[in-house]
Design a protein around this nucleic acid. Structure first.
Lengths: 200, 200, 200, 200
DNA sequence: GACTAACCGAGACGGTACGTCCCGTCTTAAG
DNA sequence: CTTAAGACGGGACGTACCGTCTCGGTTAGTC
């Protein structure tokens, strides 16, 4: 989001006119976070965000195309707080990383939000691309890093297809997250890893 | 006299009032199908459905609480057309069933629709229950039947956790459906089955 | 309302089919009265009347064209209870009759109802005719009777235009009823009669 | 600095936000006028007004509580076009003023509209107050001015109760307007004035 | 006693309008 | 040239009634 030119590189003088307010940007994201926590995706209407952040609607539309992208930026911020463990043991790394992921979805309340964005992505191809590139791809890369480190250590056979493995790990997690038909806890992660031959 | 008593005993005499019109019910679902095909979930507004079906909005609200439940009924109808193969060989059954499932999602266009409903289920617990009971549970049962038939035949170890297997099959399929980062085709199904030890 | 042929005149036997239920007719009018008392004309919707009277809507539409006519019948019933004084003195007769009229409008609560019907009459010529013939004309005749008896007695000049007088008595009363800018009480009636030379 | 202070002192600087659009306001009232002319009060639904004026419904509800107030504003505009004669002779002034009033009601078509508002005022006390203050009171004041000028000139006895006179003039006019049982023309005005001793 | 005919309750039906929410755009004055 | 404020055209929501229709089930007179 927010890819305005960095004009400071031009020399000394900044751009003409009033510069963008960093405080405003923060206030908007804070309002998004609060509204999502209170009433989920439907509660975070642009109108409500603007009112909560004491900001004009236009200010939001100037920097984000719409609600989905705004919420996406919030989720990216949340995802950045996930750990990148490197204990030297694949199974442990996975337990830490996937445990934190599931915890964020369930206890952190981001699960329903991410589902709403995913639904929107089904309808809006432009957003789908952004959604994948800016949120999903990062998480997949993080998990892939753990796996390939394990592979390098010989904990994982060299011929295992990592992309397939990513789908087979994230897939069931998302599936349970979205349907909620069974708990999304350490026990499930353990079963998953065992079934995939990732836990000793 | 005797006849009258018998008539009552038979349970004749429906509820009072004009009975529900089957034609109207069908027209509404047909309109839903048409609008979903044309513009996806966002296009299937109650207002548009009513207009397309030449029906009063109240008639829709009389029988469905809202758009999600209306679309759910459409999806249930679609899901009822999926095959229930019984070839005597587990891998073949799975290839047929899962192939048809993915084909419906992608070529049939129900993928984005189901995603929208799932997103709504995250926000509306009442609907989430309906969604699972009336649509998901049936699909899981169908797949479970295939697996347990294979288990009975000895194609699958007796100690395999079938519920876990369901999550590990449906999960990656949904994951690819929703993210669209990789094809959802026979090749993927084959990889999946192989990884899970379900294809020879 | 309800001008079905009097077939009894034909002989003994009534018309074929189930005869109209007097109890139902009474229940409908009672429901109208109750709803008007509770929430005025807007509350007396056909739907509400039917529900209150435990009657099918069709039963109402069978006997009345719509809400205005239904309410009109109620008002005719109320108007029938107004007195027809004949004390031998014009001024006294007028005080009694007009006092009762105003009392019914204000304390009896029929004022707003009659105003609603009048407004409807502006838009529906067919109803306007009914309204005048079945409600207003009767009241005018009643008042005219009082005046012409006074004229016969010599209390009123023989060349006074009685129709004009009717307009000049009823007009100001209605005017105050509808606008409510000043009380509609005995004092006003007295002023009115004095100004018109009808009270000594 | 000084200039700025002065600007504020002058009362410059309107309220924040986009100012109300005069064109939109005019378009709405024009649509009201057109719809009233075509189909009377029932035709002037908020929905129809919005469509005719090419305006969002919310824009109407932002400035008017509902249909009655919107129509009231239209009527106020119409009433403002009535003459305020001052010929030096009471009877002439009255003939001009009351003639124009009746002409507007009948030929101008505002009669049924004003009746509808009056009916609504019976049910909605808040509106009743507005209706009287913003429309009726002005007309009564105009007529009162004519009468008190005549009184000053000695054409009318000093002890005549002008408020009573207002009711006795407007009352019969409204009465005939609403019931339509007799013409509302110059002849009637003449009779009225004669009976009240206002025409020589 | 069956048949016919009109009644009655209940309530579904197509439809109009309501008043509200939110969208994304626009137009001000202030900084 | 951004910002807060908020009006604007517009689309959809879910509700209330309208007047019509279609059921099952009376309730009378006629054959």
């Amino acid at each position: 989001m927010v890819e305005k030119k960095e004009r400071e590189a031009e020399g000394r003088g900044g751009p003409p006119g009033r510069p963008r307010s960093a405080a405003t940007h923060a206030a908007i994201l804070a309002a998004v976070a609060a509204l999502l926590a209170e009433g989920g995706y439907p509660a975070a209407s642009i109108e409500a965000v603007a009112a909560r952040a004491a900001v004009g609607k236009q200010t939001i539309y100037r920097w984000w195309p719409g609600r989905p992208e705004l919420v996406l930026e919030y989720l990216i911020g949340v995802a950045a707080t996930l750990p990148s463990p490197d204990t030297g043991q694949l199974a442990t790394d996975l337990r830490i990383y996937l445990g934190a992921t599931c915890h964020g979805w369930t206890a952190g309340g981001t699960g329903p939000v991410v589902a709403a964005l995913m639904a929107h992505a089904q309808v809006d191809a432009r957003f789908a691309s952004r959604f994948y590139q800016e949120l999903i791809a990062g998480r997949r890369t993080a998990l892939r890093t753990l796996l390939s480190r394990g592979q390098a250590r010989g904990e994982l056979a060299a011929d295992r297809n990592l992309d397939l493995l990513l789908d087979m790990i994230y897939g069931p997690l998302w599936y349970r997250l979205l349907l909620g038909h069974a708990p999304l806890d350490e026990g499930f992660i353990e079963q998953l890893l065992t079934e995939l031959g990732l836990a000793p």
